[in-house]
């Protein structure tokens, strides 16, 4: 299977099996991604969108009290 041009397989220095592998780095990266998603979502919805009024509202208005 190994081949000179397949860097991926020639550089292998150890074999890590399923039981001993713990993707901790992936967990860290995905947590960071999660936090970015949440922060950006809140920013986009509450600042960019709701701050971008006027906005289309329901014809039956209950907003008067709130606005």
């Amino acid at each position: 299977m190994a081949s000179a041009t397949e860097t991926g397989e020639t550089d292998q220095v150890r074999e890590i099996g399923h039981e001993e592998y713990d993707p901790v780095g992936t967990a860290i990266l995905i947590t960071i991604y999660f936090l970015i998603l949440v922060l950006l979502w809140v920013f986009m919805y509450f600042v960019e969108f709701l701050g971008n009024g006027p906005t289309v509202v329901g014809a039956v208005l209950t907003v008067v009290g709130l606005a």
Binding site: P23, V24, T55, G58
Partner: peptide, 29 residues
């Protein structure tokens, strides 16, 4: 970890839909 991520992903999805629903009933969009 992947189970935890599955839960987190569901939280995201439900959170997104909750935000949209808030926009409909709160500011009345």
């Amino acid at each position: 970890y992947e189970k935890a991520w599955l839960v987190a992903a569901m939280v995201l999805i439900v959170g997104f839909m909750a935000t949209i629903t808030y926009g409909a009933v709160g500011p009345g969009i």
